[in-house]
């Protein structure tokens, strides 16, 4: 094996995929890197807050540092999740229409829940 995994035809054409693969790959890795501290922070907080009541939870969510970290965790987490689910869908769903529909649905859900969460966090922090 000469270390080249492309087929003879692909080698002759000399080009890779013309799609968004490289950008997608990087975005998945960069979001993973950012999520390392965020997920550790969130998991520890969740465990420590276990049993906290309505008032305590709101006071926690509404404090400035927590607001920033929580919004980051949700936004970056949903972005990474949606990139990851796209790969899973591409692996198992082969009909073009269904594949595209599922990927778009994942994006819509991610944006909807992400925006709802950000508005909720800001309203707890600023709305009193």
């Amino acid at each position: 094996m000469n270390g080249d995994l492309r087929s003879p035809l692909a080698r002759a054409r000399g080009l890779g995929s013309a799609k968004q693969g490289l950008h997608h790959w990087w975005a998945q890795r960069i979001t993973a890197l950012a999520l390392i501290p965020l997920v550790v922070w969130f998991a520890v907080s969740l465990v420590l807050m276990s049993g906290a009541d309505y008032g305590a939870v709101r006071a926690w969510i509404g404090s400035p540092v927590v607001m920033v970290l929580l919004i980051l965790t949700i936004a970056v987490g949903l972005h990474h999740a949606q990139l990851g689910l796209q790969v899973v869908i591409e692996d198992y769903v082969h009909a073009d229409g269904a594949k595209l529909a599922l990927i778009v649905l994942c994006r819509f859900i991610a944006v909807l829940f992400g925006l709802a969460a950000i508005v909720a966090i800001l309203s707890i922090g600023f709305g009193g």
């Binding site: 969510i61 929580l70 965790t73 949700i74 859900i109 829940f113 969460a117 909720a120 966090i121 707890i124």
Partner: peptide
């Protein structure tokens, strides 16, 4: 998604 539901409920 559950995390988002959590903060929406808290709001």
């Amino acid at each position: 998604l559950y995390l988002a539901i959590w903060v929406v409920c808290a709001a």
